[in-house]
Measured scan of single mutants.
Amino acid sequence: KKSYVLIKVKNPKTKETHTIVVPEENLEEVLKALASQPNVKVVDIERFP
């Protein structure tokens, strides 16, 4: 059974918020990819039960 993680990201320029759902096993690479985006800020990470 896969567990999923909900990542909320915000664009500081446009103030838009997006929610991305990723499998927990991919969380680290997704966070690394997001960290390299200049106008993306991770605001929240939630685990799915």
Rank of each mutant, 00 (worst) to 15 (best):
residue 39 N to K: 04
residue 10 K to S: 13
residue 49 P to K: 05
residue 32 K to A: 09
residue 13 K to C: 11
residue 48 F to D: 04
residue 26 N to Y: 09
residue 34 L to W: 03
residue 19 T to P: 02
residue 24 E to P: 04
residue 1 K to P: 14
residue 36 S to V: 07
residue 18 H to E: 07
residue 42 V to Y: 02
residue 12 P to D: 15
residue 16 E to H: 06
residue 48 F to H: 07
residue 15 K to A: 11
residue 37 Q to T: 10
residue 9 V to M: 14
residue 37 Q to R: 12
residue 48 F to V: 12
residue 4 Y to A: 02
residue 10 K to M: 14
residue 5 V to T: 03
residue 26 N to A: 10
residue 40 V to G: 02
residue 12 P to K: 13
residue 2 K to P: 15
residue 47 R to C: 06
residue 37 Q to V: 09
residue 22 V to K: 00
residue 44 D to Y: 14
residue 25 E to L: 04
residue 6 L to W: 11
residue 23 P to I: 09
residue 36 S to W: 05
residue 11 N to Q: 02
residue 31 L to Q: 01
residue 29 E to M: 12
residue 36 S to Y: 06
residue 21 V to K: 09
residue 31 L to G: 00
residue 42 V to H: 01
residue 15 K to P: 04
residue 32 K to D: 05
residue 39 N to A: 06
residue 16 E to Q: 07
residue 8 K to I: 09
residue 4 Y to F: 09
residue 48 F to Y: 13
residue 20 I to S: 01
residue 20 I to E: 01
residue 17 T to S: 08
residue 41 K to D: 13
residue 27 L to W: 03
residue 48 F to M: 12
residue 19 T to A: 08
residue 39 N to R: 03
residue 44 D to N: 11
residue 28 E to I: 08
residue 44 D to I: 10
residue 27 L to Y: 04
residue 32 K to Y: 06
residue 23 P to L: 14
residue 30 V to C: 06
residue 25 E to M: 06
residue 45 I to P: 01
residue 24 E to F: 09
residue 48 F to G: 05
residue 1 K to H: 14
residue 14 T to N: 06
residue 34 L to G: 00
residue 14 T to D: 04
residue 20 I to P: 00
residue 19 T to V: 10
residue 23 P to Q: 10
residue 30 V to P: 00
residue 18 H to C: 12
residue 43 V to R: 01
residue 20 I to W: 08
residue 5 V to Y: 15
residue 1 K to F: 13
residue 5 V to F: 15
residue 4 Y to W: 12
residue 25 E to F: 03
residue 47 R to P: 14
residue 9 V to C: 07
residue 25 E to R: 05
residue 9 V to A: 02
residue 21 V to G: 02
residue 14 T to Y: 04
residue 21 V to I: 12
residue 9 V to E: 00
residue 37 Q to W: 08
residue 30 V to N: 01
residue 43 V to F: 03
residue 35 A to K: 14
residue 49 P to F: 05
residue 22 V to R: 01
residue 48 F to L: 14
residue 4 Y to H: 04
residue 42 V to M: 02
residue 9 V to P: 00
residue 16 E to Y: 05
residue 27 L to G: 01
residue 40 V to C: 13
residue 28 E to S: 09
residue 34 L to A: 01
residue 28 E to L: 09
residue 48 F to E: 05
residue 2 K to N: 11
residue 40 V to K: 04
residue 44 D to W: 13
residue 37 Q to N: 11
residue 39 N to W: 07
